[in-house]
Amino acid sequence: MALLIVVAALVVGGVQAADGGVSAADRLAGAAVLLAATAALHWRRRRPAVVLAVTAAAAVSYYLLGYPLGPEPVPFVVALYATAEAGRRSIAVTAVPLAVGLVLAADVAAGRAPEGEDLVAVTAVLVAAVGLGELARSRREQRHAHAERAVAQERLRIARDLHDTLAHQLTAISVQAGAALCKRDSRPELAYPTLETVREVAGDALREVRSVLGVIRADATAGGNSCDAVPAIGARAGLAVTMTVSGEAGALPPDVDAATYRIAQEALTNVRRHAGVTEAEVRLAYLPRHVEIEVLDRGGGTAGSGDRTPGGHGIAGMRERVTALGGRFSAGPRPGGGFRVWATIPR
């Protein structure tokens, strides 16, 4: 609406300010023709080609009827810009030579001699309108593509968080439930504490899943995703975790803290699921510009604490997390047996 008001003001002001000894009635009639073309601009986004034709017809009619020259191209130029912006490139480009041809034809029909300078100026304005429309369309498409990439990245992050959370918690629940079943007949008094642990782990899983689905980034206070909680991860999964911390922790950015926690969680979960051992070692180093985490086990086989089954996503997910934060990641067998997961992330 604001654009229509500006164009209307330009055409009315141009008609009134133009020279040529035209009567007030002719000025009023000329303004009415151009205002009708301006009103058509309201549909420039929905029907750009139609609006372009209407404004062109209005400009030619205005010219042939001998109304004051000057403002007649304004609605057409705006329509030409809108056509290019709408992605109708072929129509917009074709309209430029056609418009110049119409100007020449109108001059001949009106008995006027075409002026080369005027034709050059008209051509330059029309080409500029098409170019600016193309530029606006290109920028809009770039913004749209950027928004789509951001959505895709957020979906990937949520999927990764869900995988990390559910893989760990469900493994812990499975281990504890299996222990409770083994004890229910021989030592029933020991089965109940184990079932209580299952209940707590399930509650933790629900809270973390709600956090992920709510697109809330886990941090040390809200989601418990702090490196200080790493030993508890192993305990819930039935692992004895030896943790070594070096350097001054300080305050880690939430993304870095969450990524470090998730890496430890995923690696320890897969130690319990695939390594065939009940012990693991975690080394956490707070360096001046990086935080470094290493998860080690002495399990059998050559596959490691990550994707030990076909189609697994553990190592890929950890690598994506670290790479997204500008860090480095590696995972592979250790000399003499076992597996090593290592990552360093800028603080």
Rank of each mutant, 00 (worst) to 15 (best):
A220I: 10
A235T: 13
S246E: 15
V271Q: 12
G234M: 01
A237F: 00
G238N: 11
A232E: 15
A267F: 04
V245Q: 09
T244H: 13
V256Q: 02
Q265E: 14
T278N: 10
V282R: 03
D228R: 06
E279K: 14
R262G: 09
Q265G: 12
M243A: 08
Q265W: 03
T242Q: 13
N225P: 06
A232C: 11
Y261W: 05
R273N: 11
A275Q: 02
R217F: 06
Q265R: 14
E248S: 07
G223N: 03
A237L: 14
R236G: 15
L287T: 09
A285T: 14
H290C: 09
A280L: 06
L268I: 02
R272D: 03
V277L: 13
R262C: 12
V282N: 02
P288V: 12
M243S: 08
R289T: 14
V245I: 12
L284C: 11
D219Y: 08
E281H: 15
E266H: 13
L287Y: 06
E248P: 00
E292I: 09
P254M: 04
A267T: 06
E266Q: 13
T242I: 11
P254I: 02
Y261G: 04
R283D: 10
R283T: 15
I233F: 03
H290N: 13
Y261E: 00
Q265A: 09
E266W: 05
C227I: 13
L252M: 07
L287C: 07
